Simulated scan of single mutants.
Amino acid sequence: MTTSQEQRHIFYDSCLGIEAYQLSGIVQKFPNHFHECYVIGFIEGGCRHLWCRGSEYDLSRGDLILFNPKDNHFCSPMNGELLDYRALNIPVPVMKKAAADITGKEFVPQFTVNVVYHSDITTSLADVYNAIVTDASPFEKEEAFFFLLEQILKEHSTPYEEHNGVFLDSAIADTCEYLKEHYSENITLEELTEQIHLSKSWLLHTFTKQTGVSPYRYLQSIRLEEAKKLLEQAVPPIDAAARAGFTDQSHFTRFFKDFTGLTPKQYQKIFTESGRDTTADTEE
């Protein structure tokens, strides 16, 4: 399998304020990570083994995937099959506004499941993706988007405050907040333990158990999200890397591609080329 057979097409839709992307012929494993946004996706072809928040799933064609912000997950191919996948990345403010419009209530939605096998909702998701790719009218795109979210919010969500999620120990919550506030700095494990006055061993094991990722991976995920925001604002990749806390440019590029499938420059092109919605793929 060569990389020329793999294709990654990503579109940013300024009307909806979301990203739509398609992965085709993918053999890449995706390491343990999380997103700051909601992710709604489905398997078009191939099979994948998914780990998400301590549970495991065997995925195949027609399965719907729902990730809340910070739902840690990773996946790998099954039986050497190539992955074909479509998905939407929805920022939290966009989701909150849409949820209020749909339900008439102000709340932060929480998906109650991560996988829905053989879901008919995938048809609605494909409609949104196709409307974005074909640059349909704003009316058509918004209608498709709201029909999709209405189904999901009705069948597979609850208000965040009513969700019985994982409880974070106060020391772990404080550590998460510290990492979020100081991500651009050269943070050490010693520095983290000094903040909470507990041992390194306790922090490493408890943090990983409660959040699903290690402290370092949590920090790198935050840095990645911050770097993406900077790239979207046309900040040069080398400057985005430094401002997000990556001290080595080559490491940043490798890390970015491992998690997104794109180089920083390819990702930036989606948002900056000619000031229009564009696509990027690995065959460039």
Rank of each mutant, 00 (worst) to 15 (best):
F167H: 14
F256G: 01
Q5I: 08
Q210I: 06
Q151W: 04
V94C: 04
R243E: 14
F252V: 02
E181C: 06
N130G: 08
H9T: 10
L231M: 11
K269E: 15
F252K: 00
F256W: 03
D127C: 12
G45V: 04
Q266T: 10
D71L: 06
N186Q: 12
L192I: 11
S214T: 15
F252M: 05
I121Q: 08
F252A: 02
R86L: 07
S76A: 09
A20N: 02
L192H: 01
E284W: 12
V108G: 02
T103Y: 07
L203N: 01
E226K: 13
Y117A: 12
A87K: 00
D63V: 04
K105P: 02
H182E: 09
P109E: 03
I172K: 02
L192E: 01
P31L: 07
D71N: 11
E161R: 12
R86I: 09
L23C: 08
Q266D: 13
A136V: 08
L83A: 03
V133K: 10
A99V: 07
H197C: 08
S214L: 04
H182P: 05
E81Y: 07
A100F: 09
Y183W: 09
G245Y: 01
T123R: 14
Y160G: 09
R217W: 05
I238K: 14
S201D: 14
V235Y: 07
T260S: 13
K180I: 04
L224Q: 07
I222M: 03
A242M: 11
S4L: 12
S274K: 13
I65T: 07
G212N: 01
L125N: 00
A20L: 07
E194Y: 08
R217Y: 09
F256Q: 01
T123K: 14
Q195K: 14
F11Q: 04
F252I: 02
L219S: 00
A99N: 04
A87G: 11
H251M: 10
I40N: 02
Y216C: 03
V128A: 04
K200P: 03
H156L: 08
T188Y: 06
S124I: 00
I270N: 03
G46W: 00
C37H: 09
K154D: 13
S4G: 10
F145W: 06
I90N: 00
S199Y: 09
H73N: 07
